[in-house]
């Protein structure tokens, strides 16, 4: 029984990391088609905001919320200053966001220094027979599931979700119907950044915050979103489940390095067979 629970936990944990780091990018790249190379740095900002809040005495759970909102606001500011001039210009966006990424890493290094800032991992562990499992890991799995549910409700059952989806599908038609597409783009970008900042804040108690933290996750999140295909939510779920299962099992049997190699290998084969991603041919749903 214990080995099965252990595998389930490892898979769930890996799944939750894939979900957390990819959801923001699924909005920004999957829906808005912006190749945002600074996505990892938004995650890093979330980690730093959360650390600063916690170190100044704010409760960790509140800090995570504050960090997510703060990164969302940063995202809106960056959209107004930089991204809004570049919609539809993929190569220019790529260069501009790469520059933004370097700028943010440099700025954070200058302000906080290059060392790892961290906060203590909360909650301790729970024993299942002889197997010890960190409660924070279980919290991460639960959080990612709740987040998915909330996003589903948001996209499918709110007016905001409807407007965003229609604008992304056909901005011309949406604006004829009286929708302010500038505003929608701005809010959607900010929302994507907020999700990424949330991921950074959630990850901080286990990995710490350092200026180059984003680089660890940026490639993984792009691979997940691209493999997921055009539907931001279903695509991310399916790709994360696939990669999380592979990574969780392989990394437990052999090593983390082999786990990552196999994930990338599977992604290559997957994209060879389904160039548009897992949900590439689906037109309905989110």
């Amino acid at each position: 029984m214990e080995p099965i629970i252990n595998y389930l936990f490892q898979i769930g944990f890996s799944f939750s990391i894939f979900i957390l780091i990819s959801l923001g990018l699924a909005v920004i790249f999957g829906m808005m088609r912006i190749i945002n190379l600074a996505q990892g740095e938004f995650l890093m900002l979330g980690a730093y905001f959360c650390t600063i809040c916690t170190q100044s005495g704010i409760n960790l759970w509140l800090s995570i919320i504050i960090a997510a909102l703060a990164v969302g606001i940063c995202g809106i500011i960056i959209e107004r200053l930089l991204i809004q001039w570049l919609y539809g210009r993929i190569l220019d966006t790529l260069l501009a966001t790469w520059g933004l990424s370097l700028l943010l890493v440099g700025a954070i290094t200058t302000i906080f220094g290059p060392q790892t800032e961290s906060i203590a991992s909360p909650l301790g562990n729970v024993a299942l027979g002889e197997l010890l499992i960190p409660i924070y890991g279980i919290f991460m799995i639960a959080t990612s599931l709740v987040l998915l549910l909330l996003l589903y409700l948001l996209w499918r059952h709110t007016r905001f979700g409807l407007i965003v989806r229609s604008t992304m599908q056909n901005s011309g038609a949406a604006s004829t119907l009286g929708i302010n597409q500038n505003l929608v783009y701005m809010l959607t970008f900010g929302f994507g950044c907020m999700l990424t900042g949330f991921a950074g804040a959630i990850l901080v108690p286990i990995v710490g915050a350092y200026p180059t933290l984003g680089l660890v996750y940026i490639a993984k999140s792009f691979v997940t979103v691209i493999s997921g295909g055009s539907l931001p939510l279903l695509g991310t779920i399916s790709a994360s489940s696939l990669f999380g299962t592979i990574d969780g099992v392989i990394a437990t049997i052999s090593t983390s390095v082999i786990g990552e190699i196999v994930v990338l290998f599977v992604a290559i084969i997957l994209l060879r067979m389904l160039p548009l991603g897992i949900t590439g041919r689906m037109t309905k749903g989110v």
């Binding site: 944990f13 890991g137 990995v207 710490g208 090593t255 983390s256 390095v257």
Partner: peptide
Amino acid sequence: VNNFQPALSRIQ
């Protein structure tokens, strides 16, 4: 590498 959960399960 900053995720050591699989290694921790092997250690256990």
